[in-house]
Amino acid sequence: MITRLVTVQNPEGLHMRPADKLVRAASGYQCQIELERCGQVADCRSMIGLLTLGAPQGTQLTLRAQGPDADLAIEAISRLFDSQFDDH
């Protein structure tokens, strides 16, 4: 299990299009990927789960991955957060 802290940096928060990008990215890996906010856990492949986190700008989330390509997935997903989902 690999864990990393990520922060929602884009002004609109984890809304529809960022969540869409997360789901698409996560779907490219075999490992289990989860995001956690204050005890609430969402499967990174579930649009509804991600939206339900209701994370606005500035929210810190715990990113977790478990499986064969977990390290690659963590890298790719946290890059998405850092690049503000290429969504300016």
Binding site: M16, R17, D43, S46
Partner: peptide, 16 residues
């Protein structure tokens, strides 16, 4: 237009 791409994810949501 991107909204509909996001809606596609809702449609394919594994929990749903």
């Amino acid at each position: 237009g991107g909204i509909f791409s996001a809606q596609q994810q809702l449609l394919l949501d594994p929990h749903v």
